[in-house]
Structure formats: structure tokens, C-alpha cells
């Protein structure tokens, strides 16, 4: 039963990711006085891409063709360990939060290799920048996550969220710091403004897009879907770790229904905040990113230290 729910929840995760992307685009268009495409446009795009014939560069090796599948399944695995509508998932036990960060690293490793495989300057540029940014973002992310895991004294995400849920509404200074650190990291890792702009193909600023420039057809669909999934994963992490209320603790239909509504509401709100931020903030220069991520790391560190100094039980 638990396993079934875990699998269903993962499928739901995968299915909802394009919707979140559509909603985000819709909010942004609305804020920028543009006419928004339908909420379901990302689904149509994905469907269209899967029906097209993929064109692969002559230079490409097997790695280029396999990478999308690897990236997509690694991202799905990362999604499967995160409680979306219910806690107490068996999948959270098979891979804890450190493994989840490892899945992201796995996907990124192959994405960067795929960027280098074609042997164009764009791919190399994207890979180099992506690896730089992610290697700065990863410690900040782990710092924020460690604050959570040390508070809950478990690295199991289900367990940690259940701990936060059961301890009621407590204002922990460490969590405030960790929340902001995680938000900054999430923006950097999912390639949003101000670190990267997903909607341009301007060579000076491209990061993520530069790596996937050569992809087309179903390969592009998988990568696009994986990045939508990644956005949703970070959204769910922020929503469910810091505001876990509403998530189902028992596997009854009613609780699960409420859980689904709650997470959709939370993600909808987060997307609105993100789109407001994206509308207000301009993109940074590449070499300002380290200050931005350094700040995120500092916030994570402050969160950790305030946990150790203020909150630990001695």
C-alpha cells in the first residue's frame, strides 16, 4: 500500500510539473502585461516534441543520445523521495536527502557531458558555467538542508517533515535563515532570473540553454520535462519543509485530497512570488553569481550556527 502510494505520488509529481511551469509563465505574462498562453501549453509542447523526429549532430556519441534518459530518470528518482501530498513514504527511506542531492549531481554530470559532446563552443560554455554555479550552490544547499536534518535528527525527508509537522508552529531562527538560503539556491539551480534566464538564447548569458542547444525531438522533451520537474522539486521542498501544514499523515482518501489541494495552493503561491521577483529583478552578470551564492551559503551557515547555539537541546 505504502509503495503504491509512493509510486502514484511520484507519477503525480511528474504529471504536475508542466502545469507548474505553465502557471508560472501565466503569472509572469500577466504581470508583464502580455497575453498568456494556456495553462496547458507546456503539455502541448512536450507532446509536440515527442512526435517530432529528433535530429542529432554527426559529432554526437552514444552519450549524447543516452543522456536525456539518464537525466530524466535521475530527476524522477529525486522527485520520488520527496513527500508531495503525504509523509511516511517508503521511498524516502531508500534514498535520503543527501542521496537526493546526489541525484541532482548525477543529472547535472550527464547534462554537462552532453554539452561537451558535440564539440561546439556553446556546449562547452554552458557546461563550464553550469558546473561552476552548481559547485557553489551545492554546499549552500546542503548547509540549509543540514539545518533541517539536525533539527529533526534524521536525514530521511519524510521523517524530517513529519518532525516539523508534529512540533507545531515554532518560530525557529535557524529555519528562517535556511528558508532564505534554500530559496536563493533554488533560483540558481533551476536557472531562473537573476542567475540564468530560461527564455533567452543570448550567448553572453546562456547557461542551461547553451548545453541543450543541440537537442531536439523527444530528447529535448525529456530534458525540458526534467528541468520543469526540478523547478517543482525545489518548490515542493521549500513548501513542505518550511510550511508542511496540510500534508497527509494518514493514507485516507480525504487526507490525500486535502494534501493535494494544499500543495497545489502552496506551489501556486510560490510561483506568484517567483514571477513577481523575476519581473522586478534584472539578470546578474555571471561573475556576480558567486557573491549571490556566497550569500546563500552564509545564510545557510548562520542557520546552522543559530541552530547549534540557540536551539540545540543543551
Amino acid at each position: 500500500m505504502n509503495w503504491l502510494i509512493a509510486i502514484l505520488q511520484t507519477l503525480l509529481f511528474v504529471a504536475l510539473a508542466p502545469l507548474l511551469a505553465g502557471w508560472l509563465k501565466w503569472c509572469k505574462c500577466y504581470l508583464q502585461n502580455r497575453k498568456a498562453p494556456s495553462l496547458f501549453q507546456p503539455y502541448r509542447d512536450l507532446l509536440k516534441l515527442t512526435h517530432k523526429q529528433p535530429v542529432v549532430a554527426e559529432q554526437a556519441s552514444w552519450l549524447f543520445v543516452t543522456a536525456p534518459y539518464i537525466i530524466f530518470s535521475a530527476t524522477i528518482l529525486a522527485a520520488s523521495v520527496i513527500p508531495l501530498i503525504a509523509v511516511d513514504l517508503p521511498t524516502s527511506a531508500s534514498a535520503d536527502v543527501i542521496v537526493m542531492v546526489g541525484f541532482f549531481a548525477f543529472a547535472r554530470f550527464f547534462l554537462a557531458l552532453a554539452g561537451l559532446d558535440i564539440g561546439t563552443a556553446f556546449g562547452g560554455m554552458g557546461s563550464s558555467r553550469e558546473m561552476t554555479i552548481s559547485s557553489l550552490a551545492e554546499p549552500a544547499m546542503l548547509m540549509a538542508v543540514f539545518t533541517l536534518t539536525m533539527t529533526a535528527s534524521t536525514t530521511n525527508l519524510s521523517g524530517a517533515i513529519a518532525h516539523v509537522l508534529n512540533s507545531g508552529l515554532v518560530l525557529r531562527p535557524s529555519f528562517v535563515f535556511a528558508l532564505f538560503a534554500l530559496i536563493l539556491v533554488a533560483v540558481a539551480e533551476t536557472g531562473r532570473v537573476p542567475v540564468d534566464n530560461p527564455s533567452t538564447h543570448l550567448e553572453l548569458t546562456m547557461i542551461h540553454e547553451a548545453m541543450i542547444l543541440e537537442y531536439s525531438g523527444r530528447h529535448l522533451a525529456l530534458i525540458e520535462w526534467a528541468s520543469q520537474l526540478k523547478l517543482m522539486i525545489y518548490g515542493v521542498l521549500i513548501a513542505n519543509i518550511f510550511f508542511p501544514w496540510g500534508i497527509a499523515e494518514t493514507f485516507t482518501a480525504q487526507a490525500l485530497g486535502y494534501g493535494l489541494l494544499a500543495i497545489m495552493g502552496k506551489l501556486g503561491l510560490l510561483a506568484i512570488f517567483l514571477s513577481i521577483a523575476e519581473t522586478l529583478v534584472a539578470k546578474m552578470r555571471l561573475f556576480r553569481v558567486q557573491e549571490y551564492l556566497g550569500f546563500a551559503y552564509l545564510l545557510g551557515l548562520l542557520g546552522m550556527l543559530s541552530h547549534i547555539i540557540l536551539e540545540a537541546s543543551r
Binding site: 559529432q59 556519441s61 552519450l63 549531481a105 547535472r108 554530470f109 554537462a112 557531458l113 554539452g115 561537451l116 559532446d117 558535440i118 564539440g119 562547452g124 557546461s127 558546473m131 561552476t132 552548481s134 559547485s135 557553489l136 550552490a137 551545492e138 554546499p139 546542503l142 548547509m143 543540514f146 551559503y297 545557510g300 551557515l301
Partner: peptide, 26 residues
């Protein structure tokens, strides 16, 4: 521990470079 995380991430970047430049591309 955070330094360890940074090390791991940098190692990944380093070996992406190694594999990417030696085996991939032209």
C-alpha cells in the same frame, strides 16, 4: 561538512572537465 560538499561538487566539475575534454567533442 560544507567544505566536504564543496569538495564533492568541485570534484564533479573537475571530472566533467576530464572526461568531457578527453573523450568527447572533436
Amino acid at each position: 561538512a560544507a567544505a566536504l560538499a564543496l569538495t564533492a561538487a568541485l570534484a564533479a566539475a573537475c571530472f566533467v572537465k576530464v572526461f568531457g575534454l578527453i573523450f568527447l567533442g572533436q
